[in-house]
Structure formats: C-alpha cells, structure tokens
Amino acid sequence: MLFKVFIESFHESCDSSRLDSFMRVNVVAMVILSRGKCGLCKCVTYYLIGMAGVDLSVVIFDLILRHIPIVFREQFEFVLHIPMCNIHSALLYAATDCSVWLTVTFTFDRYVAIGCKRLKQKYCPEKTAAVVLGTVTFLSCSIDIYWYFILAGPYWRGNQPWFCHVPIKDMLSVVWGTIEFLHYILTPGVPFVLIMLLNVFTLRHFLVSNRDRKRLRAHSCGESTRDPEVANRRKPMILLFVISANLIILWSVIMLFSIRTRMYYQGYEAMYLHWFVQEMGFMLQLLSCCTNTCIYAVTQTKFRDELKNVFKCRFLRQSYDE
C-alpha cells in the first residue's frame, strides 16, 4: 500500500514519462541480453546484464528516492524525522560506485580475453564473471555504508539538486574535505585511469594480433580476404571502447565541478563555474546509466534484431487487445 501511494504521488509531482523511459531502457536491455541471442559469449553477457541491473538501481535511487521530501511532505510527515537521507545516500553511493567499478571489471575482462591467453581460461569463464559481479557489489555496499554515519541531517530542499543537508562548518572542515577527495579519487578517479590504461593495452594487443594474422593469411592460398576471427573480435572491442568513453565523458563534468567546489571550500580560488554546471553534471552522470542500451543497439547487429522483435511483439499484443 505504501509503495502504491509512493508511485502515485511521484507520478503526480514529476515527469512520469521520463522515469518510465529511464527504467524501461535498462529493463529491456536486461531482458534481451538474458535471452543469449546477441552473439556475445556468456561472460560478456553476464557483465552487461550486471551493469544494466546496477544502472537501473541508480535510476531508482537517484530519481525516485531523491523526491521523497516532496512526495511524503503531506502524506507521511514521519519520513522527515527518520534518517531516510542517510539510508538513501548509502544506497545511492553504493549503486553509483558499483556501476563505475563494473565498467572497470568488464574492461579488465576484455583485456584478459584478448591480451592474456594463459589467464583467459581461468578468468573469463561465466562462473568467474558471476563471482566478480557479486564481489564488486558486496564491496561497494560495504565501503559506502560509512555515508550513513557521516551524513546526519534532513533533506536539503533549496534551489539546488535535493540531497542530504550538510552544515557549512562541516563542509569547511579538513576532515570532510579529506573524505570527499578520497571519494573522488576512488570513484571515478582511479577507474578513469584504469579504464584508459586497459583500453590502450587491449587496443595495442588487438592491432598486433590482427597484423600477425594478416601476414599468415597472406602466405596461404585460396582463402577469402575477410577474416571471421577478426570480425568476431572487433565487435566486443567496439562495444568496450564506446562504453568506456561514455562513462568517462559523461562523468567528467560533475567530477570537475566537485573538485573545484572542494578547492573553493578549502580556500583555494579556482576557476569560476556557475551552479548550472553542477545540475548539468548530475544530468549527464544519470544519463550515463541510461545510454548503454543505445550503445548496444548501435554496435551490435543481433541486439538490434532482438530489440526489433521485442517492439514487434509489443505492437502485435496491443493490436490484438484492441
């Protein structure tokens, strides 16, 4: 009953079509990938399903729970008197960190599959992928639980994105600044560096391997110029690079603004950035959790075919009901 009232209130106060679109995008991706008809190995499929599921949780925690002070302002006053924002912050940071670090593990998995043949047999099976997904999720939830104890205050409902209210004296303290810097270094600073390095190593090995295969095929006779093995390797490579670039680009704005704001609070005059940059950064960060389905559709032919089949089934069902 409580969940029903919550959803109804949220749809009345917010743009429900935007919420439905964000959630359906990730759900559709999970359904299509779970069928196993996209031409990807099970290991890659597990990672992509896990990433889509975590992105869906980010959308729920960031779009739905962030509007609790609006939705429950009249119906349930007690929500404002319990540490709901502390719970919300722990869940949101855990889901966000998990989304970023799963991209790192997926990048490392592709590097092992392409550049480390000896380690490939031990690391790349689907059982290992399931263990890695569970470990990253558990570590993200365990590490980010400290936000529950750090943030102690009601929701901030000013002319800025709503979240936990932090007193100015705490934000100006060295302890808070150290915590924020460590948080930005772990997510997304270190993942950015790891993703770029792994992509460089993967691309280097991919190019060297392709050059060697071309030389071998040049000495053979009666073979076609098109190498199916290279074509099969190219698809996951394109998918990997696009997902990595999508994460780095869409996270860069909020990361730059957060570092600039922290330097300002610590007394270092940095470049001026308007507050709308923060709002744009939040929007792009949230968008990074909703664009993977578009990436799959652009880079994977079989995924596009499965997506068309889903839409056809839906339209046929609607026409049958009418």
Score class of each variant (00 low, 15 high):
Gly189Ala: 05
Arg213Ser: 11
Phe106Glu: 05
Arg204Pro: 00
Leu284Lys: 00
Glu126Ala: 15
Ile243Asn: 15
Asn210Val: 04
Gly222Phe: 06
Asp305Arg: 09
Glu126Asn: 02
Ala90Asn: 02
Glu223Gln: 08
Asn199His: 09
Asp97Asn: 14
Val104Cys: 09
Phe106Trp: 05
Gln300Asn: 15
Val175Ala: 14
Ala130Ile: 05
Lys169Ser: 14
Met171Arg: 15
Arg204Ile: 04
Arg118Met: 07
Ala52Ile: 02
Phe78Asp: 03
Gly36Ala: 02
Val136Ala: 02
Arg317Gln: 14
Phe22Lys: 01
Ile114Trp: 06
Met30Val: 14
Val298Met: 09
Thr225Ala: 13
Ile185Met: 14
Val253Ser: 05
Phe163Ile: 02
Cys164Val: 07
Arg314Cys: 11
Asp321Lys: 07
Phe181Pro: 00
Glu126Lys: 09
Met51Ile: 11
Phe3Asp: 02
Leu119Lys: 04
Phe206Asn: 04
Gly53Glu: 01
Phe192Ser: 05
Phe206Ser: 10
Ser220Glu: 13
Val28Phe: 07
Ala95Ile: 00
Ala94Cys: 05
Ile70Thr: 13
Ser209Lys: 14
Ser99Cys: 06
Leu182Cys: 13
Val242Lys: 07
Leu48Thr: 01
Met283Tyr: 08
Asn210Asp: 14
Lys122Tyr: 15
Cys290Met: 06
Met23Gly: 01
Cys85Trp: 09
Leu286Pro: 00
Gly158Leu: 01
Arg213Ala: 09
Gly39Lys: 01
Ser224Phe: 11
Val79Lys: 01
Glu269Tyr: 13
Gly36Arg: 07
Cys313Ser: 15
Leu316His: 14
Thr299Asp: 02
Ile179Gln: 05
Asn232Tyr: 06
Met30Thr: 13
Leu186Asn: 10
Cys85Val: 04
Glu279Val: 14
Ala94Glu: 04
Ala113Gly: 07
Tyr46Trp: 15
Phe3Arg: 06
Ala95Val: 02
Pro236Trp: 12
Gly134Trp: 07
Leu256Gln: 05
His274Leu: 01
Cys141Ala: 10
Leu239Ala: 06
Lys117Thr: 08
Leu216Arg: 11
Phe201Cys: 09
Cys38Tyr: 00
Cys141His: 15
Ser319Met: 10
Leu194Met: 13
Gly50Ala: 12
His11Ser: 11
Met237Tyr: 08
Tyr320Lys: 14
Asn86Trp: 01
Val54His: 03
Asn159Val: 04
Cys14Phe: 11
Val54Leu: 03
Met271His: 09
Phe106Arg: 02
Val277Trp: 06
